[in-house]
Design a protein around this nucleic acid. Structure first.
Lengths: 341, 341
DNA sequence: CGATTCCATGGAATCGATTCCACAAACAGT
DNA sequence: ACTGTTTGTGGAATCGATTCCATGGAATCG
């Protein structure tokens, strides 16, 4: 299909130098004369030469490609993260190969294998399961790796995570002050570190601020919106239903919202709702959603910085970013006039 | 950093065959004995061998990588499209290199250059400007290319687009029936085919259904949310303001929503609002948003199919997918009791 | 002025997998 | 039994850029 492509030899021939010299000019090697540099530059422009990245990578073992493995691009949190990481990488001259694990371990392994075969310079991953074989293959090969958002127990690589604790404490305190006592928690899957950490934080904060610690108030979802709907449905059906809901990520909050709307409950009056992750349009809802917010842009940027340090042979410290509660109208006082059924 | 990696020679040595035979086994060449196949398979498993994709691509000119160039991953429409295309490509054994042009032509060119250097097997692009130099470089090299969502005048490559006309006509008819006469249109940039087509469709439909054709009712945005806010602000400030707004994409609709909320206008009563592109949570807003919907999943899947046909040397026909109006509460009748100020 | 350093340069080896080519062994046909 | 085909195999060339090494000429120093 594609015609015979232009190689460095064509450039060298047109410039009247050897391929070695042309290569030196292209890679900015100082051992080149101004004349050669000029002639090669002219030839490159004339032929519109694009060096073959494969051949270059084969010899020099650097590809200038990093792999970014996420669980779901359609989750706005990860879309923002992808955007932030990708822009930060681009500024460093790296292009990003995006893998979408789609919340599936086989698909995650497939992408990791591809990353290994593509000899990416490094990997930024929001890992899924605990003992994924390809994850170990990555580390056995000493491929520079950084975890983002999530971590995996027993695997010691630098990571950028959110300190869910501060935001969740603030949320619990806020709800307690508003007079709530029974708060339903829609948890993430306990196979992810974020799922576990946020649940632990919630339990601790509930105790601290005198909220009910009834285990029936926790529903285990899978970070996707359908489980948020199911969770809200389940919690509202309890003998002693909660007066407030806290969802461990934004898709589950959206799911819960659908259920609440469908049941005709007024959010912020009949039922308070708080979501982990701030999404631009959450403030556009009626009422606007109270959220636990963290800085996705910083997370992406930091992940790239850490990865560059690992590639550079250093062993950087993991970074934990803060989270904080942003109070909006969805977490108002429970309406005493209506009360619970 | 990375240790000496395992090559096909190591596999061959362990299996007691030559590199040539090992290669044949790995690529499924039938000219191999069952014994060799078995021994090579065992050696591959034993060493956890991952072939070097660079070396393979260098020799065989196929990389099994396609480039996907989008304007903005944070736009849910493109996130969905990325997801759909990526899943369809994966099913065909292709991995996707995602480039995010970020609505910027230099960044688009940077990614296209990278795609060329990476010798991707093909490119799926939602192109930005008209005469981008890298876009021409792509085509001069006969790199299989398919346009998605948008097209570029004068560049004849297969494409998958949406027939905006049907959806926009339905929207105009619907608004006219609801008694609207002055409909504000927040247009996309006229440097994109979608921006131009949708505007043209709107003008035609306005004439057909007796809506005002006052050019002051059209505001030119850039497909990003800030311009939606600005557009709504501008249109509401006209001497004769519109009673309904139609936004040419979802981020601009969100922007318009912010402005309307800020001004305290009740959507669906004081002002109707319709968005092009359906987004999951648009139905969760209060009131739920009336939208012009099209099938993103089909668009991504079709783009991959067309690209495979182009790679295969065929010249497939472009595909135009339908759009349709989904009526929800945001486009109700204008409230006569309040009227316009 | 001869010896040494410096510099730009070209030739050749190299990266790892694929594939052409040649060759040997096994087997079929007359 | 002797060609003629098939089949599996290894050696070697190849893809395109990088980089080590050697070389010749200019510049520098004692």
């Amino acid at each position: 299909m594609t015609g015979p492509s232009i190689t460095i030899k064509d450039v060298a021939a047109l410039a009247g130098v050897s391929a070695a010299t042309a290569s030196r000019v292209l890679s900015g090697n100082p051992a080149t004369s101004p004349q050669s540099r000029e002639k090669v530059a002219a030839a490159v422009a004339e032929l519109d030469f694009h060096p073959n990245a494969q051949a270059r990578a084969l010899r020099s073992t650097r590809t200038n490609v990093i792999g970014l493995l996420l669980s779901d691009v359609r989750n706005p949190f990860f879309a923002d993260l992808a955007h932030a990481a990708e822009q930060a990488a681009l500024a460093e001259g790296l292009v990003t190969l995006l893998g979408n694990a789609n919340e599936s371990i086989p698909q995650q392994d497939r992408y990791l294998d591809t990353f290994i075969s593509q000899r990416v310079d490094g990997v930024i991953a929001a890992p899924q399961g605990e003992g994924s074989s390809s994850l170990h293959a990555l580390l056995e090969r000493d491929i520079p790796t950084v975890f983002v958002d999530r971590t995996v127990d027993g695997i010691d690589v630098p990571s950028v995570t959110t300190d869910s604790d501060s935001g969740i404490r603030q949320a619990a305190e806020h709800l307690a002050r508003q007079g709530h006592e029974r708060v339903g928690y829609i948890a993430g899957p306990q196979t992810t570190s974020t799922g576990r950490d946020r649940l632990k934080s919630f339990c601790r904060a509930a105790r601290e601020f005198g909220l009910s610690t009834d285990p029936a108030l926790t529903y285990f979802g899978d970070f996707q919106s359908a489980s948020g709907s199911a969770g809200a449905h389940h919690l509202l059906g309890l003998a002693q239903p909660p007066t407030a809901l806290l969802a461990a990520d934004s898709p589950m909050a959206v799911g819960a919202l659908v259920t609440l709307n469908r049941k005709g409950l007024r959010i912020g009056r009949d039922m308070a709702l708080i979501a982990f992750d701030d999404i631009e349009w959450f403030s556009l809802l009626d009422p606007p959603l109270t959220v636990i917010s963290h800085d996705v842009e910083a997370m992406g940027r930091t992940a790239v910085r850490l990865l560059l340090e690992v590639i550079d042979g250093q062993k950087p410290e993991s970074v934990v970013l803060p989270s904080e509660l942003i109070v909006r109208a969805s977490s108002g006082t429970p309406d005493p006039s209506l009360g619970q059924p």
